[in-house]
Amino acid sequence: MELPKGISVCCLTGELHVRVCGRGTFQNGQPLRRFALEMIEKGATQCIVDLAGCEGMDSTFLGVLAGIGLRLNQNNGHNRMRVTNVSHRHLELLQTLGLDRLFSITPAGTTPAYVAPANANFQRLPDSDISQLNKPLNKNDTADLMLEAHDNLIEADSRNLAKFKDLTQYLRDRATKHDPSKTS
């Protein structure tokens, strides 16, 4: 069965299941972030992200995943974020950003330990199919998401600071200009 493009989610007794189909980018990171934080608030203790249908991820989307992983680990201990069906290409990306140490990774072709039941009722998050976005993104929300996501990547692995310092500096300066109370 072909999965619908976008991000589909399902929450089952403390497990948040996420399926990424198509691209995961700064354009659809926000709905996932909001939903995941709400579920963690309601008691989710682990998150399983299935990348079987994922065509690519940008650093903001990876930073959103890192933020969910950091929050879960903070509440519940290590390796609460499990990423499954990880292709070689995605694995290289996760390793480049040091996220292989934050996430528990199951490569594509291997049976993951945590699988949603076949009858699990996945719902697609609104505005998560970037090919169908019909309303403009909010500038400040997007910039804030991008900043938070890249800060998460730096918190997950300090080697990311060199990669993202120009971007985070720019976004921090921008946020401060927009709202002077946001000083670093």
């Binding site: 980018t25 700064f26 940008d58 650093s59 903001t60 991008m146 890249h150 990669k163 993202f164 310092k165 120009d166 971007l167 985070t168 720019y170 976004l171």
Partner: peptide, 14 residues
Amino acid sequence: IGSAGLGALIGFAK
């Protein structure tokens, strides 16, 4: 073009 690419271009321009 992804977000990290754009951010890095700012650094190169600087």
